[in-house]
Design a protein around this nucleic acid. Structure first.
Ligand SMILES: [Mn+2]
Ligand SMILES: [Mn+2]
Ligand SMILES: [Zn+2]
Ligand SMILES: [Zn+2]
Lengths: 145, 145
DNA sequence: TCGTAATTGAGATACAGTCTCAATTATACC
DNA sequence: GGTATAATTGAGACTGTATCTCAATTACGA
């Protein structure tokens, strides 16, 4: 059994919730998608395997996965919420190309540290943060010229 | 005439668009709100002065104000897009309290610099960035204890 | 195996945001 | 000032994402 499955089962058990086949399928799909995804992309992937699984169940399951830190919201794109699995991955931030939509992940230790300093300065207890840089990727800059 | 009004008029003129009384009202309201606001708060404020002004006109005007950098989107709150006027103000980032919703603005020069470095490293041409830290403000931390 | 509370799918509903269209109006030009 | 014309407006219809309802089903502890 995968680590993320153990994690999710514990989370559910502690709260008296059930580990259903539907939730198992969704969990598996979430960790087999290795890019950022939105609900429709997830539904399409799941629909192929079990065409009874309803959108409502996906909408009901994602908040659970968020709450136990298996996934997180990333930048919104055209009004849609996008997600990525984070369990087993290091925290990182994002750059998004305004032309082609390409997402680049980066981690800058110094920025992480400075954020902690800022929080200390304001007596703010940080839970999470999100840094998104919008602009143009290398390829799209060339095309614009 | 205010600087922001000159700015907006120039923007409109360059594009063959009109400076209408409705747009003037919206612009004025946007710069008289000194906190982050959403469309409904803006509509309420405007409705008092001119109850004919329609929501559609507000929805049509805000993208113009965004495009000429008079305002910017800030963090979303409960599914609603929130805005703040930025013309004449220095760029800053935000901390949001998950309990009381309090927004604290901060500017950390070193973080701004480091972001530029990261962009250079990836040959990414930055247009704008948004850093949001979610957590608990000083008051709400005390209440939780 | 049983009892029960959680969960499900399907469709209804909510609601922010966009679009349509006929009537109105700002502005460039004379 | 007057006129032509393309932009703009309000009202309400419409879209699409996300949530809710409810009867039927099911996971799981005892
Ligand atoms: Mn990522
Ligand atoms: Mn601000
Ligand atoms: Zn690109
Ligand atoms: Zn607070």
């Amino acid at each position: 059994m995968n680590d993320y499955e153990i994690e999710f089962k514990n989370y559910l058990k502690e709260r008296g919730l059930k580990f259903t086949p539907e939730r198992a399928l969704i969990l598996k799909a979430v960790f087999s998608l290795h890019k950022h995804f939105d609900i429709d992309q997830l539904w399409e992937k799941l629909h192929k395997k079990d065409n009874r699984l309803s959108r409502a169940t996906i909408y009901r399951t994602l908040p659970l996965l968020l709450d136990c830190n298996l996934i997180q919201e990333t930048l919104r794109c055209q009004g849609r919420v996008r997600y990525e699995h984070i369990f087993g991955h290091q925290h990182h931030d994002h750059m998004v190309c305004l032309k082609c939509g390409k997402v680049t992940e980066f981690r800058e230790e110094k920025i992480e540290k400075l954020q902690e300093e800022v929080c200390k300065r304001y007596n703010f207890k940080s839970v999470e943060h999100r840094l998104g840089i919008r602009g143009y990727c290398q390829k799209c800059q060339k095309k614009l010229r």
